[in-house]
Write a protein that binds this DNA or RNA. Structure first.
Length: 291
DNA sequence: TCCTGATGGGTAC
DNA sequence: TACCCCTCAGGAT
């Protein structure tokens, strides 16, 4: 789930469900109890995403919030939205937001209109002061999902980093200080779609190739925000177009190489290769990505 | 019922 | 590079 598109969707969903509404905030069986107590009863003023980081602003003015909550889902974190009864608590790190006046913070029933959000297992769920939040933004690279006129979406620093780096392009695309929001799926898929061998040093990637990678990332991830899935195959390679069975996988989308090790490349039939690369699984087609 | 791995990242060596 | 964090679906048993 949690590549950047998931977090941008999450920010929009928080606005949809909770913006301007006083919230019941609790941390049942959680380690965020004190933070939840400080947020309880405040309205949600805003929500935004930068890369894989989510920032919820509590108070009445999103620019001058009373509290700012930083959430990072990490590898395991999950968020569920619902209406009506809230599911019973499980797990150790958990945050619950709900609307409605008639409910005590630790009951399992939601409020009048019963909207709730349940967060389990995040890597980060913490209140930050402005300087701490600024430090997070400062260490993140270009976010392909932010509007092009947002300075945080400016790809020029990423271009420069890559153009001067001996690190592989595969590792650079996963480095959140270079590009914020792309993860292992988009990394593998964008390199496949642009025919780039993943082990090439960043400085050997041409300006034209980088332009295509950035434009493709923007388009693919925007589609991910729209649909909530990661689909990267072009129309001519869909299951329907090729007469092949659809992919059966826990995250749902149609992809070229991600987690398809040993299976035939959808374009050339070469078995998809895999290796552990900088502690993450890398997938690529040795023929389509020969260079 | 148990075991493994996963779309992430901070930290210690 | 290894480990830790700590969730949960899917496969193995």
């Amino acid at each position: 789930m949690p590549e950047g598109h998931t977090i941008h969707r999450l920010a929009a969903a928080c606005i949809d469900h909770f913006a301007g509404r006083k919230l019941l905030v609790s941390s049942p069986q959680g380690r965020f109890g004190q933070g939840a107590a400080r947020l309880d009863g405040l309205p949600l003023a805003g929500a935004d995403a930068h890369g894989k980081h989510l920032f919820l602003r509590f108070g009445t003015d999103p620019d001058e919030p009373v509290h700012r909550l930083h959430i990072h889902l990490g590898l395991y974190g999950k968020v569920t939205f619902g209406t009506g009864p809230v599911p019973p608590p499980t797990g150790q790190i958990r945050l619950r937001l709900a609307t409605g006046e008639a409910v005590a913070t630790d009951t399992t029933a939601a409020g009048d209109d019963g909207r709730w959000m349940d967060l389990r297992g995040p890597t980060a769920c913490e209140l930050l002061d402005p300087a701490e939040e600024a430090a997070i933004h400062a260490r993140l690279g270009a976010d392909p999902l932010l509007p092009p006129d947002d300075p945080r979406a400016d790809p020029e620093p990423a271009r420069r980093r890559i153009a001067h780096s001996r690190t592989t392009i595969a590792a650079l695309l996963m480095d959140q200080s270079v590009i914020a929001g792309a993860g292992n799926v988009y990394r593998a898929e964008v390199l496949f779609r642009q025919g780039i061998e993943p082990h090439r040093p960043g400085r050997d990637v041409t300006a034209e190739e980088w332009e295509r990678v950035w434009a493709d990332l923007r388009a693919l991830m925007a589609e991910g925000v729209r649909t909530g899935r990661i689909d990267t195959v072009r129309p001519e390679h869909t299951p329907e177009a090729m007469g092949r069975p659809p992919r059966v996988d826990d995250h749902g989308g149609e992809v070229y190489v991600y987690r398809r090790a040993g299976m035939p490349c959808l374009i050339c039939g070469t078995p998809v290769a895999t290796e552990s690369h900088a502690a993450r699984n890398l997938f690529w087609c040795p023929t389509c990505q020969a260079r």
